[in-house]
């Protein structure tokens, strides 16, 4: 069987892999690249556990074919922290106890980070609708929504103080 060679970028680093035509990006990440942070909860785009960024937009990696990654920039949960410094969204999830089993958490964090980058001051309703594609069965979403709002608030404050300093 002849595989398709894909040249792409994952979390800022150049990456190459071989895949089949019908293989999903999620499988390429998890199985071929060993990046198991993105999870498969449904395989049909209904749970968001596999959420990754592709060229700056969040997508369900179970609904992207691996060959489509050619020439794209992929960002996964593994690249959210800068080295060992957690992203504010990650830190706020911990501080608010916004995870129980933690299986949906990588998808939520990637999606929440994308939201705050687009909308630095989201309302509760905007957070809830933006995250409607991410299922969590443990928390009832309450602490997740609070963590995202708090992360956004902290990031706004940081930006303001940077501006003041500059």
């Amino acid at each position: 069987m002849s595989k398709i060679a894909v040249t792409t970028s994952i979390n800022g680093d150049p990456a190459e892999f071989l895949c089949d035509a019908g293989e999903t990006l999620l499988d390429a990440l998890r199985v071929t690249m060993g990046l198991t942070g993105a999870k498969e909860g449904c395989g049909s785009g209904d749970c968001g556990a596999c959420t990754v960024m592709m060229d700056g937009e969040m997508v369900c990696s179970c609904l992207v074919l691996a060959p489509e990654a050619e020439g794209k920039s992929i960002a996964t949960i593994e690249g959210v922290a800068e080295g060992s410094v957690l992203h504010p969204v990650q830190r706020k999830f911990l501080e608010h106890g916004a995870l129980q089993c933690g299986f949906c958490t990588p998808g939520f964090i990637v999606a929440a980070k994308a939201l705050i980058e687009k909308n630095p001051d989201p309302s509760e309703s905007e957070i809830r609708y933006w995250l409607a594609g991410n299922l969590c069965r443990c928390t009832g979403y309450d602490k997740i929504v609070r963590a995202v709002a708090d992360a956004a608030a902290e990031m706004r404050q940081d930006q303001n103080s940077q501006r003041t300093a500059a």
Partner: peptide
């Protein structure tokens, strides 16, 4: 939680991983 960082960074190893 002590296992928190593993779970917000995608390092924690679940059944399918």
């Amino acid at each position: 939680r002590p296992d928190g960082v593993d779970k917000v960074t995608g390092k924690a190893i679940y059944g399918p991983d």
